[in-house]
Nucleic acid binder design. Structure first.
Lengths: 217, 217
DNA sequence: ACGTTAAATTTTGTATACAAATAGAGCAGC
DNA sequence: GCTGCTCTATTTGTATACAAAATTTAACGT
């Protein structure tokens, strides 16, 4: 059987990612423990792990809260994502096998077909978001850099980043899908400069779609 | 008084960073606890924290070991450092104040003076390494991106990266100091492309100095 | 001698107990 | 009504106890 601490960790994590916990909600160890019928020990471990990932903030003797992110945080996150995922494309392109290219192409097709159906349906947006994550994750995996993957992971687990498509306009969605298709074409052509440039543009476009105009600071 | 867990964390951490613990040495909770006269609980917390940072590896029911890094790991680390620190330069340049430029210039001067003295002395290399860390840290701080700082931090705490200068040839050291000076000059001129390019070259040069020629894979 | 299996020991994972710190309620004073 | 205080209740931090898993040791047969 899996460790209890890991189970707790995953439960709290998905709860945060799905936005089921309100912003900066207090996470009391005892409460979580009794609600799950376990002791505080594994709860503590899970919370510390989430803190290390940046999903919760803990202050000494004051406990843990769900982390929250302001506009400046999101700007930082998308800026870094644009750099790191672009780099992933650069590394992945010369390594890409025919099978991997085909895999990415299939996801593009699936997403395009999904986008043509009624988007107001409950199931469409999650389906798109899931495939989007697979698409980006696959390219990161293809980059063959464990640490690059880990760095990106620590960035994108912020709820708003996970739920990107929820705030997309139809035009933004179309542009996003075109970017995906163009990235695969660039990789197919073995052109890592092209591929990485489109990826960078793709993430920065998402940034603007979510944040609106750049803040002057 | 500070939390015991934090104290333990720092002790183990510096022990690893100073290379006082042999590679992949087992870290038994009970042993560490009794040797410090405390219970296992804070030791556990410290070990999990170090695991999240990548300084130790933990396997379920099998405990923690000091992490070790092979050539491929180091290559990944320096590649990512080159990208992220270069980005830090890009962000820092337009924000740099006169005082900050002067601060960096002073470090450059100090390091140049240290390099002219007898390098075989016990104290010279640590003094250089400390100033090197301050130099890079200052630029990261000037970039004003909390997350960028955190990402870089998780990369550079690997012992070999911390102790870079220990393996430098005199020529490599000179080149490194020239890079530092050039970076400051570029920032002073407000040229973020120049500054970030030199920084990228600076880190990639360090990579080659430490790893030798690129592995063909 | 060698390998295999089974007990014994060690070590981790979780629960519980207690101490230390913090937050909050209630009340005094202005 | 508001501010600042004390005391209580809550909550975190650490220690200890026990259960579960893994590693080591020992025994046994071939």
């Amino acid at each position: 059987m899996a460790k209890i601490a890991t189970t707790v960790y995953e439960q709290i994590r998905t709860a945060i990612l799905n936005g089921e916990l309100s912003n900066s909600e207090r996470l009391v160890e005892e409460d979580l423990a009794v609600s799950m019928g376990i002791s505080r020990t594994p709860v503590r471990e899970a919370l510390r792990r989430l803190a290390a990932e940046g999903l919760v903030d803990v202050s000494p003797n004051r406990g843990a809260r769900v982390a929250e992110w302001d506009v400046h945080d999101l700007r930082e996150i998308f800026d870094l994502r644009s750099i790191l995922e672009s780099h992933a494309c650069e590394l992945a392109t010369p390594r890409a096998s025919a099978a991997e290219i085909e895999f990415l192409e299939n996801i593009c097709t699936e997403m395009e077909e999904l986008a043509e159906t009624d988007l107001s349906s409950e199931t469409r947006l999650p389906a798109l978001a899931a495939r989007n994550r697979i698409f980006h994750g696959k390219i990161i995996e293809m980059s063959n850099s464990t640490r690059l993957g880990l760095l990106i992971e620590t960035l994108i687990h912020v709820p708003i980043v996970m739920q990107t498509y929820k705030v997309y306009s139809p035009e933004a969605l179309q542009r996003s899908l075109h970017h995906h298709r163009e990235i695969v074409n660039a990789m197919k052509a073995g052109d890592e400069v092209w591929a990485s440039s489109v990826m960078r543009a793709h993430v920065l476009a998402a940034r603007e779609e979510i944040l609106g105009q750049p803040d002057p600071e």
